[in-house]
Design a protein around this nucleic acid. Structure first.
Lengths: 157, 157
DNA sequence: GCATCTGCTGGTCAATATGCCCAGTGAATT
DNA sequence: AATTCACTGGGCATATTGACCAGCAGATGC
C-alpha cells in the first residue's frame, strides 16, 4: 500500500504532465516501459490512483463563488439530509464531522447573490436546524497532493 | 466560457471513463473525431478543464484521517501564514474566508494521534492566534463535479 | 547452499490512436 | 449574396499501446 520512490516520481510526473503516455513516462524516469505499466496498474488497483478524470474548474463553468457551510442536523435525520444535499449540484462535497451533530459542505454559486439561492435550497430542508456559511475570498493553496506524495515516497525509502 | 450540451456530455464521458481516447469518445458521442478534438482544445484553453492529473487518494497513501481547521490570524500576518502552511504537506488546501481574520484549511494525517502532530505543526507559528479543528467521520458526498457540469450544460441549451 | 519468486530489462509483434491535413456541407452572420 | 464558422468524413505517416517473451538480479524460504 505504501509507495516507493519510483511510484512517487511517477505520480508527480503524471501530475505535472498528464498528457504523456506510458512510453514517454518510462523514458523520463529511466526505466523500462513494462515497469511503468506494472507500477501504474498496481497503483490503480491499490486505489492510490483513483483515476485520471478531467479536472474541471467551477469558476470557468460560471460558478466563481465558493463557500463552506457548517450544518447542524436534527437527531436521526442524517440519512435524509445526505440524500437531500446529494441532489443539489452546487454541493460539491459533504462530510460529517465531530461536533454537535454537524455536517460540513463545500458550495459553489454563480455570484454572491446566487449563493443566497443555493443556501436557501441547502437549508430548506426539515432536518437542518441551523447553518453557518463562510465565503471564500482567496485560495492561497489550491487543492494539491504532490507534496504529500513526495513525503509518502520518502517515508518508505 | 459557458459550455453547451456536447461539451457537457464530453466532460461527463471523460469523467466516467478517463482511459478512452479522442477517437473512442467521438464514437460514443456520435460526432466526428475532429469535433471532439476541437472541443477538448477549447475546453482546455478556456480553463474549464485544467488537466487530467491523477486523482490520488490520501487514504491509500497512508493518510486516512481528514480534518478541517479554522484558523484565526493576527492582523497583517496573512502572507507569512500562507507561506508557512504552504510548506506543510499535510495541508491539502487553504482558503481565506469572510469572518474575523479567518483562514480555513483541509488537513490529512496518518491517524488521530498523528493529527495532533500535524495540528501542532500548523498552529506552531506566530501569526496564528487560535485554531479550531473538526475531524471528518464520513464523507457521504465525495468531491464531485459532474452534477454541476450537467446543470451548466443544460443552462445553455 | 540451492531453488523459487518477484520485479525489472530490453526486445518483438500486430493493432490502434494520434496529429495533421484536406474538401465539402449547412447554418448563421454580415 | 457573400462570408464565416463549426462540423463531417476521409486519408496519411508516425507514435503508442497491449500483449507477449527470455534473461537477469536480488530477496526469500527450505
Amino acid at each position: 500500500m505504501a509507495i516507493d520512490h519510483l511510484d512517487g516520481r511517477l505520480i508527480v510526473l503524471l501530475a505535472r504532465e498528464p498528457r504523456i503516455g506510458v512510453l514517454e513516462a518510462s523514458r523520463r524516469l529511466g526505466v523500462a516501459r513494462g515497469t511503468v505499466q506494472a507500477r501504474l496498474d498496481r497503483l490503480q488497483s491499490n486505489g492510490v490512483i483513483r483515476g485520471f478524470g478531467p479536472d474541471v474548474d467551477p469558476a470557468a463553468l460560471g460558478y466563481p463563488v465558493t463557500a463552506f457551510a457548517t450544518l447542524e442536523i436534527k437527531q436521526g435525520q442524517g440519512a435524509d439530509v445526505r440524500a437531500h444535499l446529494g441532489g443539489v449540484p452546487e454541493v460539491l462535497e459533504l462530510h460529517t464531522t465531530t461536533g454537535h451533530g454537524d455536517m460540513f459542505c463545500r458550495l459553489v454559486a454563480r455570484s454572491n447573490a446566487d449563493l443566497q439561492r443555493v443556501i436557501d435550497r441547502v437549508v430548506g430542508f426539515d432536518g437542518i436546524v441551523r447553518a453557518s456559511t463562510a465565503i471564500v475570498m482567496e485560495n492561497p493553496v489550491p487543492l494539491r497532493i504532490i507534496p504529500l506524495v513526495e513525503q509518502a515516497a520518502e517515508d518508505t525509502d
